[in-house]
Design a protein around this nucleic acid. Structure first.
Lengths: 212, 212
DNA sequence: CTTATTTGTGAATAAATATTCACGTCATGA
DNA sequence: TCATGACGTGAATATTTATTCACAAATAAG
């Protein structure tokens, strides 16, 4: 509803900028930061190398912009889910579904996500790393607090809420990863109920083996 | 018991080679493939740059050698655990413990492991990726077959064994990751029973919510 | 239509770093 | 002790790629 708010010049400028970001996202996602050259990005976006530098101070700036905006969207979506005023069990279920859905919408982003949160964010110079990690941790903390509430309400067993959050996120990530590697074999829609089920009920046949 | 099997010359040569690999491992693990120069590795290992090239054809060769040997050790250890003739429940518990122990022994390797299995292995040119991934998948498949046996023996619920394997590995990895980020806060020894417990029994208080 | 301003271009430059190789150095065996 | 070959060295070279900037094209203003 706010279209046309900006002058034509500005809008065109933004469109160009987005084209460059899109090209960069695709390339970074496929090959990783250091295996993509500025020339390559410019070429893919069909601009001259100089133009690219008119929009972004340097390669790192371009990359940071990309990752930041992605991270912020990720953060916003999951935070919204956890902020919703429902019972804790629904919150957790919604969290699982929302995370899966976010990435199924843009497969490409998933690669960037793993590159930044797992393993190799130490590839890029400091600075960005911290910010993205912080957003990621905030979500884990909030998920953790949801579990804390659940424990008090006696919906969940009396386990450390933080570890529950870590465990859940780990399961989801490993399903996302296997989906990323072979999208045909591991449909994500099929994964959501399985994740939920395993996490909530465990894999043992009887509750009798519980240590607690 | 096989010391002295090799001539002095050869042994010294191997020792030198290992020093170079050790220096490389440390640097790659800390900064990632592209942020480490051959000069840096040579300097750290206290050899001239030319010497490094006498031992390894090029940078990629050095890196591949490193990752391959690490991956092979990882593979061997976990395969041994799963091959052990015990009941399925013990196998799974041992798997959890063995994986945690392997990485607690060499923290540094953990970084390399995440770089290769998660997210950014697509950073390095093809070839290596495939081999390492293959070893990793073999373990998941074997874990999966253990779960299959467990389902038949009615130890585990009737869920897809492959997904159980994916889920378990995901939980373990996320605990390892949080340990890597803050070793003081998340002691790995403390993590093992929690992982086991959550995975086997789930987080819900009652078994009544089970969907199956 | 002319001028001014903004924006796009890509050859040229700068910097980083992977790789080579002509030359010492050292150990071994005669 | 000397000759020989294996090994180590690091300055020099090759290559890749990030970044700049003088100029051209397009657009807006008068």
């Amino acid at each position: 509803m706010y279209y046309k708010k900006l002058p034509r010049r500005e809008r065109e400028r933004l469109r160009r900028r987005n084209e460059m970001l899109a090209a960069a996202l695709k390339l970074f996602s496929e090959k990783g930061y250091h295996n993509v050259s500025m020339h390559e990005i410019a070429q893919r976006a069909e601009f001259a190398i100089g133009t690219l530098y008119k929009f972004f101070r340097n390669k790192e700036d371009l990359y940071k912009t990309l990752v930041r905006s992605t991270a912020e969207e990720y953060h916003r979506i999951l935070k919204d889910v956890l902020d919703q005023e429902t019972n804790v069990l629904s919150s957790v279920k919604n969290y699982i579904a929302a995370k899966a859905e976010f990435f199924s919408d843009n497969f490409i982003t998933l690669r960037l996500y793993f590159a930044e949160t797992q393993g190799t964010s130490f590839n890029i110079k400091a600075g960005l790393d911290q910010d993205v990690r912080k957003l990621y941790n905030e979500i884990i903390e909030q998920l953790s607090s949801t579990f804390g509430k659940g424990v008090q309400e006696q919906v969940f067993r009396k386990l450390d809420p933080y570890y529950m959050a870590v465990a859940l996120d780990g399961i989801i990530n490993s399903f996302l990863l296997s989906w990323m590697e072979d999208p045909k074999r591991h449909l994500y829609k099929k994964g959501v109920p399985i994740i939920t089920d395993i996490f909530l009920s465990g894999v043992l046949i009887k509750g009798g083996n519980r240590t607690n």
